[in-house]
Simulated scan of single mutants.
Amino acid sequence: MGHGRQAMSKLLASKQPINAVICSIDLLAQGVMAEAQANGLRVPQDIAVMGFGDLEFAAHTYPRLSTVNVDGGRIGLRTAELLLQRIEGSLGRREHVEDVGFRVVPREST
């Protein structure tokens, strides 16, 4: 959260017009919202904020944080399966890309 506040502080100090901030994890987004609000900005009226991960607290921030939901359990399980296949030699050495999907969770911060 502190890194999100620091990053938002730098963005605001740049005096560049900002309409939205998209973060790589919900915790950064929470910090961005806190810093924006501490500087008198209204979320989402003055600036929209989007997180990633749909962490449990995202639905309970003020305003509630819009985010991207990914199935972390599925990613972890599939990663373990692929790792075991590579160790056993049945996967080979080629690059493996797998789409596990995502879901945008629109809430009040956007």
Results as ranks from 00 to 15, higher is better:
residue 1 M to G: 13
residue 1 M to F: 14
residue 3 H to F: 14
residue 5 R to N: 08
residue 6 Q to I: 14
residue 7 A to I: 04
residue 8 M to T: 02
residue 8 M to Y: 03
residue 8 M to I: 02
residue 9 S to A: 12
residue 10 K to T: 12
residue 11 L to C: 09
residue 11 L to E: 06
residue 12 L to F: 03
residue 13 A to F: 05
residue 13 A to R: 07
residue 13 A to D: 07
residue 14 S to F: 04
residue 14 S to L: 04
residue 15 K to S: 08
residue 15 K to L: 06
residue 16 Q to I: 12
residue 17 P to C: 07
residue 17 P to N: 09
residue 17 P to R: 10
residue 18 I to S: 01
residue 20 A to R: 00
residue 21 V to S: 02
residue 21 V to H: 02
residue 23 C to G: 00
residue 26 D to P: 00
residue 27 L to W: 12
residue 28 L to T: 08
residue 28 L to R: 06
residue 29 A to D: 01
residue 29 A to V: 02
residue 29 A to C: 02
residue 30 Q to A: 15
residue 30 Q to L: 14
residue 31 G to N: 04
residue 33 M to D: 03
residue 34 A to H: 13
residue 34 A to C: 11
residue 34 A to Y: 11
residue 35 E to H: 05
residue 38 A to M: 07
residue 38 A to E: 05
residue 39 N to L: 05
residue 40 G to Y: 02
residue 40 G to W: 04
residue 41 L to K: 09
residue 41 L to E: 08
residue 43 V to I: 07
residue 46 D to M: 04
residue 47 I to L: 08
residue 47 I to H: 01
residue 47 I to P: 04
residue 48 A to P: 04
residue 49 V to F: 04
residue 50 M to Y: 13
residue 50 M to A: 13
residue 51 G to N: 02
residue 52 F to E: 02
residue 54 D to E: 05
residue 54 D to K: 05
residue 54 D to S: 06
residue 55 L to A: 12
residue 56 E to P: 15
residue 56 E to G: 15
residue 56 E to H: 15
residue 57 F to N: 04
residue 57 F to S: 05
residue 57 F to D: 04
residue 58 A to F: 00
residue 59 A to N: 05
residue 59 A to R: 08
residue 60 H to M: 10
residue 61 T to S: 01
residue 64 R to E: 11
residue 64 R to W: 12
residue 64 R to T: 13
residue 67 T to Y: 00
residue 67 T to E: 03
residue 67 T to I: 03
residue 68 V to T: 02
residue 68 V to M: 01
residue 69 N to V: 15
residue 69 N to T: 14
residue 71 D to K: 09
residue 71 D to E: 10
residue 72 G to L: 12
residue 72 G to N: 14
residue 73 G to K: 06
residue 73 G to E: 06
residue 74 R to L: 12
residue 74 R to W: 10
residue 74 R to G: 10
residue 76 G to Y: 00
residue 78 R to V: 10
residue 81 E to K: 09
residue 81 E to S: 09
residue 81 E to V: 09
residue 82 L to P: 02
residue 82 L to S: 06
residue 83 L to S: 08
residue 83 L to E: 06
residue 85 Q to K: 10
residue 85 Q to Y: 07
residue 87 I to S: 05
residue 87 I to N: 04
residue 87 I to R: 04
residue 87 I to V: 08
residue 89 G to C: 03
residue 90 S to K: 11
residue 90 S to R: 11
residue 90 S to F: 09
residue 90 S to P: 09
residue 90 S to H: 10
residue 92 G to R: 03
residue 92 G to K: 03
residue 93 R to E: 13
residue 93 R to V: 14
residue 94 R to S: 13
residue 94 R to Y: 14
residue 94 R to W: 14
residue 95 E to Y: 13
residue 96 H to M: 11
residue 97 V to T: 15
residue 97 V to L: 13
residue 97 V to W: 13
residue 98 E to V: 05
residue 98 E to R: 02
residue 98 E to F: 05
residue 99 D to L: 11
residue 100 V to A: 12
residue 100 V to D: 10
residue 101 G to T: 06
residue 103 R to I: 14
residue 104 V to Q: 12
residue 104 V to T: 12
residue 104 V to C: 11
residue 105 V to R: 09
residue 105 V to L: 08
residue 105 V to C: 09
residue 106 P to C: 06
residue 107 R to P: 00
residue 107 R to M: 01
residue 108 E to A: 11
residue 108 E to D: 09
residue 109 S to E: 00
residue 109 S to G: 01
residue 109 S to M: 00
